[in-house]
Design a protein around this nucleic acid. Structure first.
Length: 647
RNA sequence: GCGCCCGUAGCUCAGUUGGAUAGAGCGUCUGGCUACGAACCAGAAGGUCGGGUGUUCGAAUCACUCCGGGCGCACCA
């Protein structure tokens, strides 16, 4: 609603300036920090001052006098040195809110957006770094969908890479287990934890016995050729771990549409198609001399104007690098490869939604059309910026400049461990590491906080709290509530930081349920819900707001500044989401939700709604509560946070 | 060496892309539960926005420079 109003004011000024002064300048509309300055402020007069060679103050006064009435605006005022402050007609605004009238977002029709996130190597348990990726990706998807975009969620599975190979080495060479034995192990709970340890053990073994690194090469070859027990082990491990990851992420409410796998990229020869295109356009060259002799490389000039080395795309032994495969995959995402995967259903979520996985064999029909997006977001941590740039350069070199521009690296900083966190985990740090502000998570070293461990701790803490507050409630119900609170805390914690802030993970902060946290926001929503529920428990039917509240009644109540401010804030949910989409910053929505909850909590304390004796006022307060509840639940929904029945 | 990012209250972070008197949470101190349940609310203390120069009506935000920290720059992913 606020969005509509903002646009209307902007357009009114824009056309007035065009007609009156013949100027076609972009009109800026701000939301003043101080509520005394009204609901909107325009610094337009400052922009015009130079062009018209007059004082901003004079221009502002002139505009205010001449622009005429603007729908929904009660008054225009000149303030400071030339700001134009806009005051809303409060009653009309509230009446419009009550009437519904939320605009349906006008997203580009037909445009399909692809968001790729999670992308965890399927060789070990997920850790907190992966959680940040998934929380950001999933929330961004929810934001886009809320604004009306059609979004496809992909989770790329590198099931043929070095990381999987290393765990296979662990099973085959170190533990001497057969595929059957590993299959049995994979059926047990927490197979991903087992692999977490085995992966660290194998890495250490390579370090202690460098001569055994050849095992890795042997395993990689077998996996790539897709033959023999090593390849079979690779499938057993990767398939089982993917299921573990899906389970872990489902705990956060995260679902995927499709899982494209590297094994199919190889078997369906996606790379061959991409390679043909790259050679035909001269995007890659066969190096005949120097250190890259025998390799196909992309010239540094394609992706950098500094003195980078050329990038090897095909190794001298004929195998393709990760970047090469990623170029092929990126081409497929835009529908530019001329090939497609086959798909089979992997699992159907409780929501009824099915996630599909790529297959190299023809499958029965029924799969939706995947890929072929017009805009692609790759949620990958910032350390891979260089590689992402090379991939985009590959698209450009093929002449797909528009797609290269719509190939967006949705980068975020890493999650690291604070020194205190390392101490809690019993991790011994070198003297050098102790002096650092934080320590990087390392799957290879087994250094990190596993996602499920963290979630378990959160659930346990929340459950203890719920039990102490609600001794008489059924236990199954309390478990559900505890889990919703735990996930609310976790998702909020991961989302409250802007993307380019390094999170130095700390248990105390992550496990907090007070202050700027998910549970704080949930609590505000629960309170609003409680008021409305209590009303019905008293045997009252909720008032027909549309019948009882007209613009004049609203205006009377909203003359009180605190009412107006909290209502105004609650009406800005769409503004907050749109801004967050524009800046690609889920943290802005988290911040908005928190501020909204704060505003409501304050309102809640100042006014006791159910005991209000003035009937008109009581109806108004109830409407405010209902409106707030809707807005907050919608906003929390975009953050992937549920509102518990009670807290 | 080259490139990217960061430096804001004791701590952890926001700051609507250049706007009005720089804001939250935690922590500290003070006060508030027989209410729609305090996972809450009210108040206080706490700032040279790393330093400097510049750009202009106006800078935490832009440019240059210095200091401090992080991350990249493989025939690994």
């Amino acid at each position: 609603m606020f969005l509509q109003f903002e646009r209307r004011v902007q357009q009114a000024f824009q056309s007035h300036l065009a007609i009156r002064y013949g100027l076609d300048v972009p009109v800026l509309v701000e939301q003043p920090k101080q509520p005394e300055f009204g609901e909107l402020a325009l610094p337009a007069a400052f922009q015009l001052a130079k062009l018209l060679k007059q004082s901003p103050k004079k221009i502002a006064a002139e505009i205010c006098a001449e622009i005429g009435p603007v729908a929904g605006v009660r008054a225009l005022e000149v303030a400071g040195n030339g700001y134009i402050n806009v005051r809303l007609d409060r009653g009309a605004y509230a009446a419009a809110l009550l009437a519904g009238g939320e605009e349906t977002p006008a997203a580009a029709a037909g445009e399909k957006v692809i968001v790729e996130h999670t992308n965890i190597n399927p060789n070990k348990a997920a850790h907190i770094g992966h959680l940040r990726n998934t929380a950001l990706g999933d929330t961004f998807v929810r934001m886009l969908r809320a604004r009306g975009f059609r979004v496809e969620v992909q989770n790329y599975i590198d099931n043929t890479g070095v990381q999987v190979a290393d765990v296979v080495v662990g099973f085959h060479f170190l533990e001497q287990k057969s595929p059957e034995e590993v299959r049995e192990l994979a059926g047990r709970p927490r197979f991903d934890y087992y692999c977490w340890d085995l992966y660290a053990r194998t890495s250490q073994h390579f370090k202690d016995h460098p001569e055994t690194v050849k095992w890795r090469a042997e395993t990689l070859h077998a996996i790539e050729a897709n033959e023999g027990p090593l390849a079979e082990l690779g499938h057993v491990v990767a398939d089982a771990i993917v299921e573990c990851h899906l389970d872990t992420m489902l705990r956060l409410g995260v679902e995927y549409d499709v899982l494209p796998r590297e094994s199919e990229i190889l078997q369906l020869e996606f790379w061959a198609s991409a390679f043909t295109q790259l050679r035909a356009r001269g995007a890659v060259h066969l190096e005949t001399a120097g250190k890259n002799a025998g390799c196909w490389v992309m010239r540094a000039a394609a992706f950098s104007d500094s003195t980078e080395d050329d990038k090897v795309i095909v190794r001298s032994n004929g195998t393709v690098t990760y970047v090469g495969k990623d170029i092929a995959y990126q081409l497929w995402k835009f529908g530019l490869l001329g090939k497609d995967f086959y798909y089979r259903p992997l699992r159907t979520y409780a929501s009824g939604h099915t996630v599909w996985v790529s297959s190299s064999e023809p499958q029965p029909p029924g799969a939706p059309a995947f890929g072929g997006g017009s805009r692609v977001y790759n949620v990958i941590d910032v350390r891979q910026s260089f590689l992402q740039e090379v991939v985009a350069a590959g698209l450009r070199a093929l002449g797909y400049t528009e797609q290269a521009e719509r190939s967006i690296h949705f980068a975020y900083e890493m999650v690291a461990l604070s020194p205190r966190c390392c101490a809690e985990l019993g991790i011994a740090l070198s003297e050098e590491d102790q002096r650092r502000p934080y320590v990087e998570v390392s799957g290879r070293k087994g250094l990190g906080v596993k996602a499920d461990d963290l979630i378990d701790r959160l659930v346990e803490d929340a459950y203890a709290e719920v039990v102490s507050r609600h001794p008489d409630r059924p236990d199954a119900e309390r478990r559900t509530v505890a889990s919703q609170i735990a996930i609310g805390a976790l998702r909020y914690f991961l989302l409250k930081f802007t993307r380019n802030t390094v999170i130095a993970f700390d248990f105390q902060e992550a496990l907090s349920f007070e202050g700027e946290t998910g549970p704080y926001v949930q609590y505000a929503a629960v309170r609003a819900r409680n008021i409305l529920r209590k009303l019905e428990e008293r045997g009252e039917t909720p008032p027909d707001f549309a019948q009882e509240l007209d613009a004049a009644a609203m205006a009377r109540q909203l003359a009180a500044e605190d009412f107006w401010q909290v209502l105004l804030a609650a009406s800005k949910a769409d503004t907050a989401v749109e801004r967050a989409v524009a800046s690609g910053e889920p943290a802005h929505i988290a911040k908005y939700a928190f501020q909204l909850a704060q505003g409501f909590n304050n309102f809640y304390h100042q006014h006791h709604i159910l005991t209000e004796e003035d009937r008109g006022r009581r109806v108004f307060l109830l409407w405010m509560t209902a409106f707030f509840r809707n807005q907050l639940e919608r906003t929390l929904g975009i953050l992937g946070i549920q509102v518990p029945e009670y807290m």
